Amino acid sequence: MGEEVKVIVFALGKEEYGVEVEKVRTIERMQPITRVPKTLPFIKGVINLRGIVIPIIDLRERFGMQGKEYTENTRIIIVAANELEVGLIVDSANDVIDVDSDTINDPPEIVGGIRAKYLRGVARVTEERLLVLLNLGEVLSKSEIIQLENIEE
C-alpha cells in the first residue's frame, strides 16, 4: 500500500475531481466578484477575502465546459498554485477523503474533454467511483499567472 494522499473532492457537472488538501487554503461560499477588464473569459474577477485580493477562475469555463448558474452549492476553493492564491469556482465541494497513492493512475489523454496536462492522475476510490486529480500548476499557464498577478496591483 502506498502513502495516503488527503484530497478535497469537488464536482463539476457529473464528474468528481480532487485537489490535495495541502494546496487548499479555504473553501468559501459564492460571493460577489469584482470584474476585471481585459482578462481571459474564464477569469471572473477578484474577491477581497479577509484583506487579500484573490483572482477567481470559473473551472468549468477553464476546462471548456458549458457554464452553469451558480447555486447554493457553488463553492470557491481557494488554492495556492505557483506561489499565487487563486479561487476556483466549482459546482460543489463535497468531501475530504484519503486516496492511496497506489490507486492513482496516469490520466488518459482526454478525460471528459479535459486535456491530460491539467490532470495529475485518476484515482480509483471504489469499484464505481473514480476521482480525477487536478494538476494545479498546469490549470494556469505562465501567461495567465502573469495576468492574474497584474490584477492584484
Rank of each mutant, 00 (worst) to 15 (best):
E16V: 09
S141V: 12
I8E: 00
A81S: 15
I145N: 05
G13F: 03
L130K: 04
I8G: 02
N94F: 13
E22T: 13
E3N: 11
V79P: 05
E83I: 09
K23L: 13
L40F: 04
R75H: 00
Q66P: 07
L88I: 08
G112V: 00
L49T: 13
G112D: 00
D102N: 12
K44N: 11
G13C: 04
V19C: 04
M65A: 01
D91P: 05
E72S: 14
E4G: 06
Y17N: 11
R75C: 00
R50G: 10
R124M: 09
G13T: 07
I33A: 13
E72R: 14
P37H: 03
V99G: 05
T126D: 03
P107C: 05
E152R: 04
G112A: 04
L133H: 03
I47Y: 01
F63P: 02
G121Q: 08
R115F: 06
S141D: 14
I89W: 01
I76S: 04
Y118S: 06
L49I: 15
L134T: 06
Y118P: 07
V96A: 15
P41L: 14
I33R: 11
K142L: 09
L148A: 08
K14M: 13
L84H: 05
R29V: 14
R62I: 09
G18F: 03
G45T: 15
V36M: 06
P37M: 07
V19P: 04
S143E: 14
R50L: 07
V96R: 10
F10M: 07
I52Y: 12
V125F: 03
I97V: 07
N73L: 09
I145H: 02
V5C: 01
L140T: 14
P108K: 05
S101H: 04
I97R: 02
V46S: 07
V99S: 11
M30N: 13
